[in-house]
Simulated scan of single mutants.
Amino acid sequence: MTRILRDFCISVLAMVSCTSCFQQNANIDKVTIEEIDYFQRSVPGFIDFVTIRVAVIPGSIFGPPGREEYLVERAEMGSAVPLDMRRLLQMGASNASTAEKNSALMVQPQDMRFVRLGTLAVRPYTDDALGSGSFMDKKSRDYLVLLYADRPGLISGNLCADSTKVNIHVSIDRAGLHWIKIKNVTPTLYEFENANPSELAFGVPTEPVISLGLVEDLLCFSCYSFAPMVLRPHECTSPSSDGEKN
């Protein structure tokens, strides 16, 4: 009962003190819906309308999605639609939790509560998945992740998934929402770091992704209708340390 009351109070306080809960430029109030190709370029396509759903991933950046909500019910492709950041803030504050005990992420302080707000693009009315729809920096074309944290801190880690490495270094300077960009340094190396976009796009791939690659796995965690195996990177270990374990 005490925990429920605490979480409720956190959610209410987040809404009341909303003006101090946004990273600089995190409170962008519009997003342009775009159909994109493999290189994140805006292209003409065949999708007329799209619905955006948000799924929470509490206490982690990777992992299976939890509760889902509709963010944008029906938006025309190419249009700029309102983005309800207050609602996203409330969703983050209500679902944040500490990291799992066996998490490969290093979180400081350890009692920091955070949650990733993942996204999914679906067809209106039918909810058929369109692919790994994601927020993007409209100018740089970088993929963006939206993260909520309840206090200042640091989330970091060097994670591996098969032959791919993911380096994470996210500095949280205040409680609230934060944009994180995914940099594709090499075909097998990705970096997550703080971002400060001035304009947002929401990119929807031109064709549904049937067999997800790493980028889609990194971005889309509610696409389980066609991707039941969710990427769960582990802490990188050297060959020598693996040999010692064997």
Rank of each mutant, 00 (worst) to 15 (best):
1 M>Q: 03
1 M>F: 04
3 R>H: 06
4 I>T: 12
6 R>F: 13
9 C>G: 11
11 S>Y: 10
13 L>Q: 14
15 M>K: 05
16 V>I: 15
18 C>S: 15
21 C>R: 15
25 N>P: 05
31 V>D: 14
32 T>F: 04
33 I>Q: 04
35 E>N: 06
36 I>N: 05
36 I>V: 15
40 Q>R: 15
44 P>G: 02
46 F>D: 10
48 D>Y: 01
48 D>S: 11
49 F>M: 07
49 F>W: 05
50 V>S: 02
51 T>Q: 14
55 A>G: 14
59 G>E: 07
62 F>E: 00
65 P>Q: 08
68 E>C: 11
68 E>L: 08
69 E>K: 06
70 Y>T: 13
71 L>G: 11
76 E>H: 07
86 R>K: 14
87 R>F: 15
89 L>F: 10
89 L>S: 09
93 A>I: 09
94 S>H: 10
96 A>Q: 15
100 E>S: 15
101 K>T: 11
102 N>R: 13
103 S>F: 09
104 A>F: 01
105 L>A: 10
109 P>G: 10
109 P>F: 06
113 R>H: 13
114 F>K: 14
114 F>I: 11
115 V>I: 04
115 V>E: 05
115 V>W: 06
117 L>M: 12
117 L>H: 08
118 G>R: 08
119 T>S: 07
122 V>L: 10
122 V>Y: 00
128 D>W: 03
129 A>E: 13
132 S>R: 02
132 S>W: 11
135 F>N: 09
136 M>H: 13
138 K>Q: 14
140 S>M: 12
140 S>T: 15
142 D>E: 12
149 A>V: 03
153 G>A: 03
154 L>N: 06
159 L>W: 01
159 L>G: 01
162 D>M: 09
164 T>Y: 00
169 H>N: 01
171 S>W: 00
173 D>I: 07
174 R>N: 13
176 G>E: 06
176 G>L: 06
177 L>Q: 06
177 L>G: 09
180 I>Q: 09
180 I>C: 05
181 K>C: 04
181 K>Y: 01
183 K>E: 14
183 K>C: 07
184 N>T: 12
188 T>M: 07
189 L>E: 14
192 F>M: 01
193 E>P: 00
194 N>Y: 00
198 S>V: 09
198 S>N: 07
200 L>S: 06
201 A>H: 07
202 F>W: 06
203 G>T: 02
205 P>V: 05
208 P>M: 05
209 V>L: 07
209 V>S: 09
212 L>N: 03
212 L>E: 10
216 E>S: 10
217 D>E: 08
218 L>M: 14
222 S>I: 02
224 Y>A: 04
224 Y>F: 08
229 M>E: 13
230 V>K: 08
231 L>D: 01
232 R>P: 00
234 H>G: 04
234 H>Q: 08
235 E>N: 02
236 C>E: 08
237 T>Y: 02
237 T>C: 03
238 S>C: 10
241 S>M: 13
242 D>W: 05
244 E>S: 13
245 K>H: 05
